[in-house]
């Protein structure tokens, strides 16, 4: 197997504050392969931002190391880390454009830092603005742009130095759903056309589902699980994974009175959901209660999930389980679900 473009090894981060130490990251081990779109998801305060900031050493970890293309970042001097950062573009929730510079000069900024001649920088900046679809706004100032346009400028700016990796910290969290979709599509396009490895930090499962190949779930400073997005959807192994996947469904399932058993049925988009449920009810001659049903769009593939409450009597419940086994529909019990 080739070297991962980014390898995070035994990484930890503790902040010293006036009220004592705050543990933000603990025992983080991750590998990101070149060319993939890797998601990192977690609830607020889980440590996501701290983790991305450790990847480019904006934040120096208190334990462990990050390897970029096999090179230890911990062993580098500050100057070397600054060089490496040019290979890792970064975009932010609040865009962080230079307000006193117009669009084209914002995109030129990282090139200015590296001493690229002005004319050459402008040319490159115009190309990038074309890539993000903003060539006609080159002279505008950030205050004159919409949120989505600002993020496009930020993306163009982050790509100016031809980075191998693009770090996105909640890049779509300040945008409306429609704009979010467009920006995610742009990120995907950049990944495919330019071969840039993309690391997406988010608290929204929909973002992960839309563009990520693999995902790491971070919960209370630790990695809860890592895997392919479709695998996580079919078979979440951690409580937090289930919570993120099921969203409202989880709450509904947990909100039951506890006497009945709930199961989560997963449809991979081939079968239509209705005949399965009606056939099941007919075949088992047992009523089931549908608690929640929804389809998700995972990398363009429709995936459905449904939470049903099994019949109260043990026999009926057993018949339903057997039926699902017999027709080979993936399911899992979600009574163990904890909020």
């Amino acid at each position: 197997m080739e070297t991962p473009i980014i390898r995070i090894k035994d990484l930890g981060k503790e902040f010293k504050t006036a009220n004592g130490p705050v543990r933000a990251l603990q025992d983080i081990n991750l590998e990101v392969s070149a060319g993939e779109i890797f998601g990192i998801i977690g609830l607020s305060g889980a440590g996501k931002s701290t983790l991305v900031r450790c990847i480019n050493y904006l934040e120096v970890p208190t334990e462990g190391d990050v390897f970029f293309e096999g090179q230890s970042m911990a062993a580098m001097t500050d100057a070397q880390r600054r060089m490496i950062r040019r290979s890792m573009g970064m975009i932010f929730q609040q865009f962080n454009l230079l307000a006193q510079r117009n669009v084209i000069r914002n995109v030129c900024f990282p090139l200015e830092l590296t001493g690229v001649p002005k004319k050459e920088a402008r040319q490159r900046a115009m190309e990038l603005l074309k890539t993000v679809g903003l060539e006609d706004r080159a002279q505008a100032y950030p205050a004159q742009l919409s949120g989505g346009q600002k993020q496009r400028v930020a993306i163009a700016r982050a790509l100016a130095t031809n980075p191998k990796v693009l770090l996105c910290d909640e890049a779509t969290s300040a945008l409306d759903p429609n704009t979010t979709k467009q920006i995610l599509e742009l990120l995907k396009e950049i990944n495919q056309k330019l071969g840039v490895t993309v690391i997406v930090i988010t608290h929204e499962m929909a973002v992960i589902e839309a563009i990520c190949d693999r995902v790491a779930i971070i919960d209370q400073s630790r990695i809860a699980e890592v895997g392919a997005v479709s695998e996580l959807f079919l078979n979440p192994r951690s409580a937090i994974g289930r919570k993120l996947i099921m969203g409202e469904a989880g709450e509904q399932a947990a909100g039951g009175d506890g006497s009945a058993r709930n199961i989560r049925i997963i449809f991979d988009g081939r079968e239509s959901t209705e005949p399965i449920i009606s056939n099941m009810v007919l075949a088992c001659s047992a009523p089931v209660n549908i608690m929640y049903a929804a389809t998700r769009d995972i990398q363009g593939k429709a995936m459905g999930q449904m939470v049903v409450q099994l019949p109260e009597d043990a026999d009926g419940a057993e018949r339903v389980i057997d039926y699902l086994e017999s027709i080979k529909i993936p399911y899992e019990e979600v009574n163990s679900y904890e909020a």
Partner: peptide, 9 residues
């Protein structure tokens, strides 16, 4: 904004 500049090296 300063963080962004730092992220660009």
């Amino acid at each position: 904004v300063i963080e962004a500049a730092q992220s660009m090296g």
